[in-house]
Every structure is written in structure tokens, then in C-alpha cells.
Design a binder for these strands. Structure first.
Lengths: 195, 195
DNA sequence: ATTATCTATAGATCTATAGATAATGC
DNA sequence: ATTATCTATAGATCTATAGATAATGC
């Protein structure tokens, strides 16, 4: 049952995509190689032709997720040149990002596990988060570059923190309150449309 | 090798204490019952005389950690009646809370795993986090109760988020920048002593 | 002939339990 | 006699590998 060179590359991407969803949904320790391969439509044993180990898959999947997340932030900010911060807050602090773990923010899903893995993963997350800080530095209010950098770090903490805490709530109302409160506190504009 | 009724109760507390540290350090899925019992100075098999399952231990340990965390916040706020918010920020946004996972904040360590466990654990974390919101509501600046409640939710998001992101950094300088930036943004006082 | 995948399994680890052991406390 | 702990192990699950299988591509 061998497969073409092209199909081989497709299979690798499929494994990475499926792993990216399952890792975000269940955590690195909450899902096994066999189940990932099954979800990708392949057999367990075939995995080791694509990756040396589960750890390598976790690293590669994280890199892809972090890179895509940063791209998305840049797109969202660029798509609203007049209110980029408000667009980013609306995009990130959303109900969807609270309930859809498998396709939501990689940082809201996996950051607490990073320090328990190797330095390579820590480096990936550090780079990704600093990329988000750079996006924020250019769109947060502030007189000086120092003030904007400070606001960028603090805003990112609040945004990721709000989604993580919202996900831990057992009530949809309290989840929403974390999102709304953070959005209002971080936005310099008086809000008009707020749920 | 039976043990007195009193020693039995002590052993249970020892298991809970050790589990509380190991869960925070390695995650619920990152440590097994056998290793927890070994760290408590007991044998694997003895565990099931104290708890029905690992899940029950995780629930009980979480309850204890969350309750202790809330107590600590109240103490810290009460210990500085003139600047309770600054005291809490200094206490929480500390280098110690970034590097000492086993004894640090339970929310900074385990919140991302809560939604993957049962509703009982979600209820425990929801109650604990709402307790922290109530502490903050009374000490954050704001003209109206609504504004203070909003600031309490947003401040808690930023505080927990800052420690979680600081822990993912591969550089001590960047970790510190998350803490310092968040402290400055959340404190209404101009800071004098900042590292 | 090469190589991507599949089948089957080794070896380690994890939760949970059964039965034996030995000290407590009536 | 009761009961807290220990020894030993069952049964499930997990990572990783070895060898067989079968399609690709020179």
C-alpha cells in the first residue's frame, strides 16, 4: 500500500493538521500517537516514517500553529487600518475562541505545558509571543515607544489570560464577563456594541 | 505495618500536599499515582485506602489549593490597608511565582487543564476565581461598582495571564517584562521601585 | 530497487485491585 | 476483630520498532 511522493507530503501535512487540533483540544499528554494517526486516516506504525518521535511532532505542530497565529493577527490588524486594536480585540476575545479549543488560539490552549517540554518548544512560543507583542506595539495607544511596549506586554497578558480564565468557567455568563471586561479595559474607545 | 487512626489522617494530608505540588509542577497527566505515593513516603497500593481514584485526588487537591490561594489573597490585601492593590500586585507578579511552579499559583499552573476534566473541577476553579474577583472588586480604582467589577475581571485576567506567559519565556528578561508591564498598567500609583 | 505504509509486537508505564501482613483499639 | 498498609499483579494504554507488503519511479 505504498503511496506517491506527493501523497507522502500530503500525509505529513495531514498528520500535522490533525495533531494541531488534537493537541489543542486534549493537551500534549492527553492524546497518543495511535489516535492521532487514526484521526489522520493512517496506521499507528506509519507515523515513524514521518517523525522521529511524538516530541518532534509536538514541536513541529507547535511551530506551525504559532506561525499561523501570528499571521492571523497581522491580517486582522491590517484589515482595519482605522481601528486595528479594536479589530484584534473583537477577533481574539470572542465566544468562538472560548468554546472551540481545537481550532482556537494555540497560546490559550497549550502555554502552560510549554515549560514542561524542552527548550525548543519554549523557544517557539517565546518567538511567537514576541511577534504578537510587536503587532500590539504598533497599535496600542501611548506617547512614547516605551509606553507602547509596556502596554503591548500588559495587553497581551490580559487577552490570553481572559480566554484561559473564560475557558475554566462553568457558566457562559461569567466566561463572557471576562471577555467583555478585558475588551473594554484595553480599548481606548468607548464601546457601543457590547453584549 | 498498620498505622494509628491519627497517623492515617496525617498520611491523607501528606498525600494531598505532595499531590498539590506535583500536579502544579507536572500537570494532572504528567504524574502518576505511584510516584505521588512514593514522594509521600507510602506505597502505591496504599493509595486506594485514601481515595477512590486519581481523579478524586485531583479534585480534592485542587479544592485545597484553590481555597488556600484565596485565603492568601485576602491576607495580602488586608496586610496593606493603605495600598492593598499594590501589595497584591507585588505579591502575585513576582519572580518567585514564575519559577517556583510546585508552590506557585494553582491558577497559573493548572487552569488550562480544567476544561478537560469533569464539571466538579470546573466548579472548584470557577468558585476560586470568582473569590479573587471579589477581593479585587474592593481594591481596584473606579467610580461605580460596575466599573470596579469590570476592572476586577480585567485585572485578574492580566495578572494570571502575565505569569502564564512569563513562564513560557526562554529568557528571564522577557519574563520580567511581562510582570513589570502588567504591574505598572494595573497600578494607579506611579511606580518608584521597579526592577 | 526503492520506499511509504501496514501488521504485529516488544517493552515500559499507568490505574486499580486482590490478598497478605501487622499494628491498633475495643 | 478491625483496619491501614504492603506486595504482587491484572489489564489497559502508550511509545517505538521490526519485518512484511505493495505501489512508485528510475
Amino acid at each position: 500500500m505504498r503511496v506517491s511522493r506527493e501523497k507522502f507530503a500530503e500525509n505529513r501535512e495531514k498528520i500535522l493538521a490533525v495533531a494541531g487540533e488534537l493537541f489543542r483540544e486534549k493537551g500534549f499528554d492527553g492524546i497518543g500517537v495511535a489516535e492521532i494517526m487514526k484521526a489522520a486516516g493512517l496506521t499507528h506504525g506509519g507515523f515513524y516514517g514521518h517523525f522521529d518521535s511524538k516530541d518532534e511532532l509536538a514541536s513541529e505542530a507547535s511551530k506551525a500553529l504559532v506561525a499561523r497565529s501570528l499571521e492571523r493577527w497581522k491580517q486582522v490588524a491590517a484589515s482595519s487600518p482605522e481601528q486595528p486594536l479594536e479589530a484584534l480585540l473583537a477577533h481574539y476575545l470572542s465566544h468562538r475562541n472560548v468554546v472551540e479549543h481545537a481550532t482556537g488560539c494555540v497560546f490559550a490552549a497549550l502555554t502552560q505545558e510549554v515549560s514542561r517540554h524542552g527548550p525548543e518548544m519554549q523557544s517557539t512560543f517565546t518567538g511567537g509571543l514576541m511577534g504578537l507583542v510587536e503587532v500590539l506595539e504598533e497599535i496600542v495607544p501611548g506617547e512614547t515607544p516605551e509606553e507602547r511596549r509596556r502596554k503591548a506586554f500588559a495587553s497581551l497578558s490580559a487577552m490570553v489570560g481572559a480566554v484561559i480564565l473564560a475557558r475554566a468557567m462553568d457558566s457562559a455568563e461569567l466566561s463572557q464577563e471576562f471577555l467583555s471586561a478585558t475588551r473594554q479595559e484595553l480599548s481606548p474607545l468607548p464601546d457601543e456594541s457590547n453584549g
